[in-house]
Simulated scan of single mutants.
Amino acid sequence: MTDRFPEGRIALVTGATSGIGLAVAEALGAAGAHVHINGLGSSGQIAAALAAVRMAGAPSASHHVADLRDPDAIRAMMAAVGSVDVLVNNAGIQHTASLAEMPDERWDALIAINLSACFHTMKAALPGMAERGFGRVINIASVHGLVASVNKAPYVAAKHGLIGLTKVAALEMAAQGSRASGGVTVNCVCPGWVETPLIEPQIAARAVDGDRDAGIRALLAEKQPSLRMTLPAEIASLALWLCRREAHNLNGAALPVDGGWTAQ
């Protein structure tokens, strides 16, 4: 596995100004892909993300401001990017409340960004992938695409839907391309707890006498048997492997990276 199979290919990663998305964008850049990112953030944060992708080795990197709640904006972004070889649907939002108390507008936003946006990007990208005989769609779902938790109705519904959508697309693309070309595959990665800045307050709240590791163990104890979080770079390594030629027959899968959460 010494060749740089994604080298020179065009990649689009949504939700890539931080966290898992940025780590995936950096990994693709390090493998020689031309990387397009989409995501929220200040001008400084966006500039820093692009600099990180270029520093990783991407021959080019650009940012697209499309609002993923808007199908027209998504179509415009896909047209601007052009022929996409690697599509990583990572953007997502969350809102916790009981089903009875979930605001209608939050339901609509979560379904739009976590599920419908993936449909629109895939609809635009898959025909070209099929024509070229190579393509990779990697949908960053969640452990909540496989199991449920209370107070997360729209998130769980969207992530379960994303896994179903992934399976349909995988079946429709399964015979495209060849072993030599790499084929067209559509898969989900389903992370459990991932160590990102967004969860630091939850760790700190559980830390005893400032012991961060104790805080992590306490946070994960209910769900994730490993008691270890996954790093964004580890998710990125899996995503990069899925882009390789030898992954041509790994298709339609929902791959849990959850420390045993869904094995219980």
Rank of each mutant, 00 (worst) to 15 (best):
M1W: 11
T2M: 15
L12T: 04
L12S: 03
I20S: 01
A23D: 03
A27H: 06
A30Q: 15
V35S: 09
V35R: 05
H36E: 09
Q45P: 09
Q45H: 10
A49H: 04
A58S: 08
A58P: 02
H63S: 07
A66L: 06
D72P: 06
V81T: 09
L87V: 05
H95T: 14
T96E: 15
A97E: 09
A97H: 04
A97L: 04
P103I: 05
D104M: 12
W107Q: 10
W107N: 13
A112Q: 08
I113K: 03
A117N: 06
M122N: 13
A124R: 06
P127F: 07
E131T: 14
R132C: 02
G135A: 02
I138N: 00
I138G: 04
N139G: 09
I140T: 08
V143G: 03
V147H: 04
A153V: 10
A153H: 03
Y155K: 10
A158D: 11
T166E: 08
V168F: 08
E172A: 11
Q176N: 15
A180L: 15
G182H: 02
V184K: 03
N187P: 00
C188R: 08
V194N: 00
L198G: 15
I199W: 09
A205F: 01
A205E: 12
D209P: 05
D209T: 08
D213W: 07
A214K: 10
L219W: 02
S226T: 03
S226R: 04
M229D: 01
T230S: 10
E234G: 05
E234R: 04
I235D: 01
I235A: 01
L238T: 08
R244N: 11
R245G: 09
N251L: 07
A253K: 11
L255V: 14
P256T: 06
W261C: 07
T262F: 01
A263S: 15
